[in-house]
């Protein structure tokens, strides 16, 4: 657990440093995510790094299995905007709902249609 969380934090740290030099438009943790995938792929099969790989995978699975709880603290921040929600809550909800439904629909159909056109379902 300690080895796994240390490896994840180091990737995040390297990601943050990279993000700083890139001007900050790509978030550090997202760079860390890409780096983790790349480094694990490049070092796959190394007997020396095998235990570190396994611990990183185990820790990641434990975190991802409880991903939802990590959004609760930020979400509770909604209590700072109760006045806006009281005055314009309906419009706010309508925008969020409409935009989310449209985005989900457009994204999933572009994915499916391009996959179909490029023969991605040929084996189904």
């Amino acid at each position: 657990m300690l080895v796994g969380i240390t490896i994840l934090l180091v990737f995040q740290l390297v990601g943050e440093v990279t993000a700083y030099f890139l001007g900050g438009f790509v978030p550090g943790p997202v760079i860390g995510m890409a780096m983790a995938a790349i480094v694990l792929t490049l070092t796959k099969g190394s007997a020396f790094l095998q235990p570190a790989h396994e611990r990183t995978i185990d820790t990641s699975k434990a975190i991802l299995a409880n991903l939802g709880v990590l959004f609760v603290p930020a979400g509770v921040g909604i209590i700072q905007h109760l006045d806006l929600i009281r005055d314009r809550g309906f419009a706010l909800m309508a925008i969020v709902l409409l935009s989310t439904v449209i985005t989900l629909t457009v994204t999933v159909w572009v994915f499916i249609l391009v996959k179909r056109l490029s023969g991605g379902y040929a084996n189904d």
Binding site: Q12, P29, G32, A37, L40, T56, K61, I63, V72, P73
Partner: peptide, 21 residues
């Protein structure tokens, strides 16, 4: 709650592991 909030960073990095697998 910030101690939970902080884990969003390493959790984002952790999303790279299924990507690798």
């Amino acid at each position: 709650a910030q101690f939970i909030h902080f884990l969003l960073g390493p959790a984002t990095v952790a999303l790279g592991i299924p990507l690798f697998e």
